[in-house]
Design a protein around this nucleic acid. Structure first.
Length: 716
DNA sequence: GGCATGTGTATTTTT
DNA sequence: TACACATGCC
């Protein structure tokens, strides 16, 4: 057990604890991954069979990394640990035991945008949002957000609306109707959204026999990033721990940044109350950053409310405080970042060991242009994902229709691809094919309609009147496609015929996933060429899809993995850097969670950006924004630069060039000179030298730079 | 009547 | 960039 000696006392305590419930409060950079990996290895060493350990993580990457590290200690056995996200594990369990909760094992999973699209489809069918009926009926993404929040926090719709979406409160009846239809339809079609995966897992764990079976399936349950779990996940954890099971949760309440996904800090704060006899272990020794970085980060957190107080400390002293860099505007901020990145690169820090972090995806837009101009290669995390590209979604929809012929939203997407087919014709075709809408069972109400396009329900009614309903009932829409295809508009005939051929070729199951992707692609490419302006760039994604598919034995698993664990985009504007090439990391703060780099630049440390002015409505939101900054500040090992443009330009005013002066982020403003070194951008410094005007007063006297004056105001 | 096409607008964070 | 909405075309 030599490796145990490498752990510090707190880590060792966590790794070898035998209490039935352990909560590890792991500050940033305190060796959390190592602790969890060691814990897994230790449990295996103590004789726990690896496949009786369940390790729940936030991303699959995290699970893979921990298990790899556990394997380095405990050997290959560690690979048999059940590791993955809540969603991925739910999927795995439900494929086996789903029948117990009325779930067909060949369900398909839709991602958030599919869910929003389905919501939108229903919204249209029910006639909401049709121009005159109501002025401001929530749009699809808002609808989805409301739904998800309601479900995940198990709060009444009326309360969710009142609290988070007051402007939608008047539309509550319509919203309720849409949600009911949405839920019914998913169930009828064997389609699950992300939330359903958790809900069904929870239902499974509460089911009479399977529930006990499930809880008895594992001896130890370990959860990483517990601060970012939601109520349902906490309930699942409680259910999985029935009987003699042991549970360990690891997390840092100071890094809880996913409340918009219904995560709640309460889970981690209340863990000791929920699990009687919990041993709480705090990890406070930071192995990542130099002390001045921690001092500044700690100071930011000191302003926060309820939390497990901890004080990060490091054995790595440094003379250099984090640097607050004031630039005149965003353009100069870009220059400044590029200059400093190259400077560090000259000093021997590879680009890959440097990261630029920001609050929102588009905050790096200008910087990306500047980087491209200067030929500095970069990769952006958390940007547009591979599977979010329209053409990739099209391909997946085609595969999903083959997998689950009742997956309506996929049918809809597929049919709209065809020339001459729009929403109305698509609805008619789906009805004729017998794609389930969930209303067919008879419990569905007749929808009110304000619009003028035929609804799917109505069309289904028409089909039954013709006797088609009975004829098709119980038969797969795929069979209907081949044996009794509906008539389509003349313009659509050619592509529709091609679609039928595709279905005929792929239906049997004679083709493996990669071969099917290839076949689907043969159908798709002509359509693709018609729809998109620059097919060449997008074509590479299709290649990649085929490559990924080659690694799978079953189509079902391939499709599910793509939705539950989407590969990051590789086709970035700057061109995909080769894997062995060096490149700078650009990332949203959210996506930077758990990562570390030698040098970190934080962009836009201005009020309105951090905290985002989208999130300053309540004290809770502001607290979360603070934690976000804290997460960003605790990423670097050696050097932290925080950038602050003094003014922002706003377009779209008839007066032309309008700008406003920014305020330094309210979280940083109270930090004194002892914690942050304040610098001006190089451009400002050079100007001053040319002037020969050192010192605050004379700059104001020159009358040239209002920004400089301001800069002096706050830096003095 | 329904589809394709063009224009204006708003855009946080993501399993 | 993607979406909602308005307008012209089959």
């Amino acid at each position: 057990m030599d490796w145990l000696k490498q752990l510090n006392p707190a880590q060792l305590e966590a790794v070898t604890a035998t209490d039935r419930a352990v909560l590890v409060i792991a500050g940033a950079g305190t060796g959390k991954t190592r602790t969890l990996a060691s814990r897994v290895a230790w449990l295996i060493g103590q004789g726990t069979p690896a496949d009786r350990i369940l390790l729940l993580t936030f991303t699959r990457r995290a699970a893979a990394e921990m298990l790899a590290r556990a394997a380095a200690i405990a050997g290959a056995e560690a690979a048999r640990v059940w590791g993955g996200t809540f969603h991925a594990i739910a999927n795995r369990l439900l494929r086996h035991h789903g029948r117990a909760v009325g779930l067909s094992p060949d369900f398909t999973v839709m991602d958030q945008s599919d869910a929003a699209d389905l919501m939108n489809l229903i919204r249209g069918e029910l006639g909401h949002g049709k121009a005159k009926s109501q002025k401001r009926f929530p749009r699809k993404n808002t609808l989805f957000d409301i739904y998800s929040r309601t479900v995940n926090s198990r709060t009444r719709l009326s309360q969710v609306l009142a609290r988070f979406f007051p402007w939608c409160a008047d539309s509550i009846e319509g919203i309720r109707e849409i949600f009911e239809t949405y839920a019914r339809r998913k169930a009828g079609q064997s389609v699950l959204d992300y939330d359903d995966l958790l809900l069904y897992w929870k239902a499974l764990s509460a089911a009479p026999e399977v529930g006990e079976l499930l809880a008895a399936r594992f001896d130890h349950v370990l959860v990483d990033e517990y601060q970012d779990t939601n109520l349902i996940q906490a309930e699942i954890l409680a259910a999985m721990r029935r009987g003699g099971r042991n549970v360990m949760a690891v997390g840092d309440d100071a890094q809880s940044i996913y409340s918009f996904r219904s995560a709640t800090v309460r889970n981690i704060l209340d863990f000791p109350a929920q699990f009687e006899g919990t041993r709480v272990v705090k990890l406070e020794q930071n192995y990542r950053s130099v002390q001045p970085i921690l001092d500044a980060a700690n100071a930011v957190m000191d302003q926060a409310g309820e939390r497990f107080t901890k004080n990060l400390f490091s054995n790595r002293p440094s003379e250099q405080r984090p640097v607050l860099v004031a630039s005149r505007d965003e353009a100069e901020q870009c220059t400044e970042v590029c200059d400093r990145v190259l400077e560090k690169h000259e000093e021997g820090v590879p680009l890959k060991q440097q990261a630029v972090l920001f609050r929102a995806g588009h905050h790096s837009d200008q910087l990306e242009v500047e980087l491209a101009r200067r030929n500095i290669p970069f990769v952006k995390y958390g940007g547009l994902k591979f599977v979010e590209a329209a053409h990739v979604k099209d391909m997946i929809a085609l595969l999903r229709v083959l997998e689950n012929p009742h997956d309506q939203i996929s049918w809809y997407r597929v049919l709209l691809l065809l020339e001459g087919i729009g929403p109305a014709t698509a609805g008619r075709i789906m009805a004729a094919l017998g794609v389930r809408t969930g209303a067919g069972a008879g419990q569905g109400r007749t929808p009110e309609r304000g619009g003028d396009s035929p609804t799917t329900e109505e069309a289904t009614g028409a089909a039954s009147a013709l006797g088609l309903g009975e004829l098709l009932d119980g038969r797969s829409p795929l069979a209907a496609m081949l044996e009794s295809p509906p008539t389509v508009p003349p313009a659509a005939r050619k592509e529709f015929a091609a679609l039928r051929e595709l279905i005929a070729d792929c239906r049997g199951g004679g083709l493996g996933p990669a071969a099917q992707v290839e076949r689907v692609r043969r159908f798709y490419e002509p359509v693709f060429a018609r729809i998109y302006d620059n097919p060449a760039v997008r074509l590479r994604d299709l290649d990649q899809l085929e490559t990924i598919a080659a690694g799978y034995r079953s189509r079902s698993q391939f499709i599910t993995d793509l939705t539950l664990d989407p590969p990051a985009s590789t086709q970035d504007l700057a061109g995909a850097p080769l894997l062995d090439e060096d490149y700078l990391i650009l990332s949203t703060i959210h996506s930077a969670k758990g990562c570390e780099w030698d040098v970190v630049h934080i962009l836009h440390a201005a009020d309105g950006m951090i905290p985002s002015d989208m999130a300053t409505g309540s004290p809770e939101e502001i607290d979360e924004e603070r934690r976000l900054l804290y997460v960003a500040m605790t990423r670097p090992r050696n050097a932290l630069y925080i950038h602050f443009p003094l003014r922002y330009y706003h377009s779209g005013s008839r007066l032309g060039d309008v700008h406003s002066y920014a305020q330094l982020s309210r979280f940083l403003a109270p930090l004194g000179k002892g914690l942050l070194e304040r610098q001006r951008s190089k451009a400002v410094r050079e100007e001053r030298e040319e002037d020969g005007s050192e010192g605050a007063g004379s700059a104001a006297g020159s009358g040239r730079s209002v920004q400089e004056m301001l800069s002096d105001l706050w830096s003095g």
